[in-house]
Amino acid sequence: MTKPHLFSTDAHKYRSFLAKGLHSPSFVIGGAITLFFVVLALVSFVWTPHDALSVNIAERLKPISTTYWLGTDHYGHDLFSMIMLGARNSIAVALVAVGIGACLGVPLGCWAAAKGGWLDEAIMRTGDFIFAFPAIISAIMITALAGPGAINAIVAIGIFNIPVFARLARGAALSLWTREFILAARLSGKGSVRITIEHILPNIANLLIVQGTIQFSLGILAEAGLSYVGLGTQPPMPSWGQMLSEAQTWLMMAPQLAIIPGMAIILTVLGLNLLGDGLRDMLDPKIRSSLDIGGSKAS
């Protein structure tokens, strides 16, 4: 009985997994776009071309130039610096929200799968209940009740990620619980917590990672939506959704104010979706075997 692993501990096989990935165009393009925005976000902590928060009316609505790489907005804010800060906010909010969803959802789903019975029912029906609400409307409701702000946006988006991960984890785990290697592990005296950590989680990790990237892109969209209606990141801290809503009245005179943050949102979401697609192709056992990626398979 080999212990199944997604990523083989064998360094050679791991490298070969990445090498295969480089042949997948969606993985490469999606990864590159995502990496670009992540780097932008990280660099913004130490450096931006201009102070993105400093108003300079004399320099407002400047076109694209070597000084202002993407021009300036109606307050004289440098758009490129704002995009960088916006990337940081979007990524931070989406990442933490997905983190909340995964950290709570996955254990709940695994717990439901391991125990079954009324506990399973209770967890999953609660999940269905949350799921049945249109997520963005409920997020608006939560931020309207708790007050607007990035933290509340994170919580609101995070809550709706919980059932997504719980469902996925439970479904995948349930099918594993009937497998022989799990049975063997049980016979050898392992408890359900240990089995879940040692056998179930490594085998559903690929599914969770793919779902994670998709949820991440949805989180970025949700953050942009909330900020657009004024419930997400609060000014003066810029965010892409806020920039879009500010640009509305300028559509005729300075369309770039809307186009630039709009493109940033589109590109990030596209990048993450392509990345998710690429990862799924690489991790899907059926396709994986045809790609002949190393690493032992489950069972």
Binding site: S54, V55, I57, Y75, G230, Q234, P235, P236
Partner: peptide, 23 residues
């Protein structure tokens, strides 16, 4: 109000006054 708030916050920051904008 919202626009003036953003500009005033930027002006006051230059003299060390940190404003929290609450819509």
């Amino acid at each position: 109000a919202r626009r003036s708030g953003l500009i005033i916050a930027s002006d006051l920051k230059k003299v060390g006054i940190e404003l929290e904008l609450i819509n």
